[in-house]
Design a protein around this nucleic acid. Structure first.
Lengths: 331, 331
DNA sequence: GCAGTTCGGTGAACCGTTTCAGTGAACCGC
DNA sequence: GCGGTTCACTGAAACGGTTCACCGAACTGC
């Protein structure tokens, strides 16, 4: 059990400069003190190796300078990329991200969001698993929340970067339909316990409109799990897949390879999200792309704006495009 | 600016139960109080919706129950997978991971490690960018540190999961040599500012031994950057690549495709790490694999053991195997 | 020359826990 | 019935900052 090295406290800096702790506190944050004093305090602090204790600061001020990032499921490569991107963008804004993983579980999502609040994060960015939960309304009461993906129902968010999933779904299903696929397995990460998301509901509506025969199958995004789910669907005779995440589509590639089935000759696959790896597969994965850099920038601008109390756009809708690469042949 | 909902404090619970705050504190942690009182306190706490404030708790006790995870570079897909894996494994041990990204920068690594200490994480897991820094010794004085990858020089770590990079490098270079490749571009994420890591040094020694003509090129792990670096190497006439991360090898695939060069016919590529996606490419990426689940389990066991003061293995060496998939033809 | 500001700074309360050093009562053996 | 433990609990001091209320001195306008 190593003992923590004793750090200098604000009182020691005060003693060294002959000022009160309060003055030191103000000086180091550049408030209400003369320039000459600030310089003196800076010097003394540097000499003593003093740096304000973030925990004590958080307790007293209620702020931390950190921003919570609550991801829906970090098994998903695209969401991993999003998290990394947001982390780096926040760093460029001199802020730190606290990244947590809801693992696709609505209950866990609520727990973690509450913990981030208790940790005094200045704001929260969330890619909600369960956007319909009334919990979000109370969350938005206590700190600025920026939602990515789906808007939070009935909550006063500080901003939202909404994906136009209706268009995304329509593009995907139409593409499959145009290529002659009528019986389609829809692989979605949504857990049974999650209330139907707008996107999922829209899948049913569009399938009806286009006269498609679909079966919705739950598939986790981790490659091994997705492969297993895809393999079961292949065993059940499915040959056309609409995957609600590129990560899941990768599982279809793996499962098809395992059964010696060729893509796109014998199996058709559509992804959703456009992860960088999707362009590297053979054939490339046909998918629907979101502008991930744009999403990152928008979310970070919103959250930083909200924290600093600056005006900012509260709502941006991301439109998808079909990225055709060859994984959907004619059926 | 939303106002934080007022939460119940320990004093209110004390008042409600007619006990002192100290008694409540003890009761909720099941220490030194009668079972009947514990039950009474529990009930009152539940009724008031009381939960101990983690920040105040951290300030008073110096502990948080969180474990810091400092990654070398989260641009790397394999490291992303490792981070996610560790996060989930810690969750299974009822602990939370605080994930930070050093972005390949030794200075940033030191800064972030210090911040995690200041945040009172109970322990730190680090995949060091700069394992030779004397900084780690002082870090290990103030909290348990578990190192993944390279051992920390001159530091009393709580544990280390060391990769046998010597063997990994030897396997890789021998494989390339056996297939008749003599002139090899080594793509490594190591920044110029980083002191040479043992693995990098070993590359030079082994190249010498095997009579290979190598050129070391710095390449970031982000796909776009790796592709660019690989493209420059291709332009310089390189046709055989040893990439020090699968993520970098993906860049070679992309660059080769961009120039219409076939793998393995015209370009040979070796990866390092074995990310799940590597098996999905065509041809599959020949690489050196580490048992990522084993690494996760070992690191988590070590860190949890160190925090709980239980005895645990302090050092595990991971041995690599060659995972031949077809991306290295005969040159 | 006097009320009214502004400036630079102080003292003390406060944030919400944990923990150390007691303390009174019950219980023990003898 | 007496010293010695144990038990269940209390009071107050940390932990290391921030912030509020206030204060004297130096300006300001008139």
């Amino acid at each position: 059990m190593p003992q923590p090295r004793k750090r200098a406290t604000i009182r020691e800096v005060a003693k060294a400069t002959g000022l009160s702790p309060a003055a030191v506190s103000y000086a180091l944050r550049g408030m209400q003190v003369s320039g000459e004093t600030i310089e003196r305090v800076r010097r003394a602090a540097a000499e003593l190796g003093y740096e304000a204790d973030p925990i004590a600061r958080a307790l007293a001020s209620g702020r931390t300078g950190m921003i919570g990032l609550l991801c829906g499921s970090l098994e998903d490569l695209w969401q991993q990329a999003l998290a990394v991107g947001i982390g780096r963008a926040l760093k460029d804004n001199d802020r730190y991200a606290l990244i947590l993983d809801a693992a696709g579980d609505p209950a866990r999502e609520r727990t973690l969001a509450g913990q981030l609040r208790d940790q005094r994060v200045d704001a929260l960015i969330v890619q909600p698993v369960d956007p319909a939960s009334p919990f979000w309304a109370s969350m938005c009461e206590s700190l600025p929340v920026v939602a990515i993906g789906d808007a939070l129902a009935g909550a006063r968010t500080a901003g939202e970067v909404v994906f136009d999933n209706r268009t995304g779904v329509t593009l995907s299903l139409e593409h499959l339909g145009d290529r002659g696929h009528r019986r389609i397995a829809v692989l979605t990460p949504t857990r049974d316990s999650t209330p139907d998301r707008p996107a999922d509901v829209h899948v049913l509506a569009e399938a009806e409109r286009l006269g498609l025969d679909i079966e919705v199958v739950t598939a986790p995004q981790a490659l091994a799990d997705a492969t297993e789910a895809a393999d079961r669907a292949l065993a059940a005779g499915h040959r056309a897949f609409f995957c609600f995440a590129d990560s899941i589509a990768y599982g279809v590639y793996a499962a098809a390879a395992g059964r010696g089935l060729a893509i796109p000759g014998e199996v058709a696959v559509m992804g959703y999200d456009d992860h960088p790896m999707s362009g590297l597969l053979s054939p490339g994965l046909t998918t629907v792309d979101w502008d991930i850099d744009g999403i990152v920038r928008a979310a970070v601008r919103m959250v930083v704006g909200a924290v600093d109390g600056r005006p900012h756009r509260r709502r941006i809708v991301q439109s998808p495009h079909l990225r055709e690469r060859g994984s959907v042949g004619s059926g």
